[in-house]
Design a protein around this nucleic acid. Structure first.
Lengths: 200, 200, 200, 200
DNA sequence: AATGAATGAGCTTTCATTCAT
DNA sequence: AATGAATGAAAGCTCATTCAT
């Protein structure tokens, strides 16, 4: 008796996710071009051929991975809407970022390597620009509300600082003082500190 | 008439540099693994075989490229020694960084992609750590001299901010306000601003 | 309630025939090697696995298909025995051929492609030779009876003409004047025409 | 010292032709899909990789082979123009065909297998139709000049007979009486025979 | 009887490297 | 010093076949 439709769907969903997870880890660790389909199959404990049962090509796996970037950006966006105070929003963003770094190292690395080499992806290459074009104006608003004198530059400074922290953390995870920097930023962008700086 | 020894050496030096330049451009644009030796030869306008007259392997080109990172770090180091005031040193570093970004985009990208994928280079992989281990203590000193209360965190904040700016600039060169950020940082880390912030 | 033995046999017979029919269409259209088992399953609307419930291998389907060639040759043979006059026999053969072309395009194409690439089939490869070795002597007899001066050459001429017509018809079905050629041949090999030609 | 341009061109021309020749033999013997690039390389005594130095893909080899069909058709066409008498033209065509069969067996087989499976080639598939559309009207003219009553049918009969002979010859080269059929056709389509048949 | 997820051998293609010139 | 034809190992991908259900 053949498996039911539901059983097959479950198997397919599980196997597909397995491939995605392992591919993400490998792409971010070794780079897309240096990762072989054999690597992915080996890492997932399945045969090479099975991968092509789920994805048309190695690049199609990357595309799928990439499309999830959008979802993350949307997640942040949705959460920010629930917060009123600009200080809360800034704090939320800091906490989210530091949390994300630890939990999604692979994702972040992949994002950076693709954003730095946009010809890796053909159709979806513009997503990075779109994200920043969507997010930055909102950041300007928040920093304006928080009373900054140069909200644009301050928002960029805030955003690039977080990226720079991520970058340096992944350069040398063992030695980078991630927690200290987390506290430092929370303090630096606390309502009290911001108000004090802006008063002068 | 055969070439003189000097002529040959000149030709060799010129050709070698040509290969290095073109390889750097391609590695940073497409990534090391995705760049073929044919790409490099084609871009340099020479034959594929000639490359092996100068380098043992594709990886050897990367090694050579990579070894130049040291020189850059040393350049900065030497210059900093000539400056007395910590504020001058900070300003020099800011200016150097922004200048470097524009002139050495390829180098910076290559550095990041290798630093994020340390298994790409076997022997030289530790250079990134060494650099940061050399540089950061000096930075701590400078920020201490400049009167910061948390010199370690502030030095990291400074350093990561610059990296974050670089990252975002290369993500979207057309739209990123590089000059504004340059001015913003010069002002933010000016002696006057630093003193004011530290007074409180 | 389980199926009865008869029901099962019926189902098996029907499914097997379905596979054979679809396989024939695909083999003749795309060639044996270029047809995948997936193609056959998809075309038959059944699962890939089911095919292996009926045939040991893709090649086994081809073997089965091929074995039906014999039956066709035997059909003609049996019919010819019922006819007395050599002119009737020739006419029967012409009519049978033109009818067969239209109804069994796929079969004819498969026959030709296998006959031209004899190493495709291992065990059954000699069938083509056997058929022609069986049929041609009978044809010689018929053409001798019909009064041809060079019965061997005339029989070959007759036989190859029909094959040539088939070939050209399948090359370009839309433009080839199949009906005209049918009439032309019937007239050319009519008793009256044959007698007239042989009189001279 | 590197090879001169001429030397390289010679090497390339020779190797390319070698690949073409071996590929033609294999495609015609085993079919395009069943022939592997390894087969071709092995048969040509070169490495598999070298083939891709000359052709973009296996299909590109087929395309090249196929494009030579045109040249053959043009050769016949040019020669026919030099002949005046329709009987001479017919005789030339017969002789050319029989000669071609023996010398270009592989070409003929490939032509037939492609013409019967037009989806094998994508862009060039229509060549077969074009050739016959070009050639047949000329054949009608010739048979009209030669005094045939039904020149269209007779021209088709002539043309298909030659194709049928080719087909049967390749089905069973050892036993098919090629020379006898050659003589038979020369006699059947001699000026004397044609005139006699048309007189009645 | 029937399904389709899974396998693995083998295919097409790529590319770092070698070598004759 | 320089070329590019040639190699071969390894990559991406396909598909006949198996097998758990």
């Amino acid at each position: 008796m053949p498996r039911t439709k539901e059983q097959n769907e479950q198997i397919r969903a599980r196997t597909k996710q397995l491939i995605i997870d392992k591919a993400l880890a490998l792409f971010s660790e070794k780079g897309f071009a240096a990762t072989t389909v054999d690597d992915i199959a080996g890492s997932a404990g399945i045969s090479k051929g099975l991968i092509y049962n789920y994805f048309d090509s190695k690049e199609a796996i990357l595309d799928t991975l990439w499309s999830e970037v959008y979802k993350i950006a949307e997640t942040i966006d949705a959460e920010l809407k629930n917060l009123k105070s600009p200080y809360d929003k800034i704090r939320y963003f800091i906490n989210f970022t530091f949390d994300f770094l630890v939990k999604n190292e692979n994702f972040w690395k992949l994002y950076v390597s693709i954003a730095l080499q946009p010809n890796m992806l053909k159709k979806t290459e513009h997503i990075t620009f779109e994200i920043s074009r969507k997010m930055m104006p909102k950041a300007f608003e928040i920093f304006k509300e928080a009373g900054f004198k140069n909200p644009t530059e301050e928002a960029y400074f805030f955003s690039t600082s977080l990226d720079g922290i991520a970058l340096n953390y992944f350069f040398d995870k063992k030695n980078f003082p991630l927690d200290k920097m987390h506290k430092f930023l929370l303090d630096y962008y606390s309502e009290k500190s911001i108000r004090k700086r802006n008063r002068n």
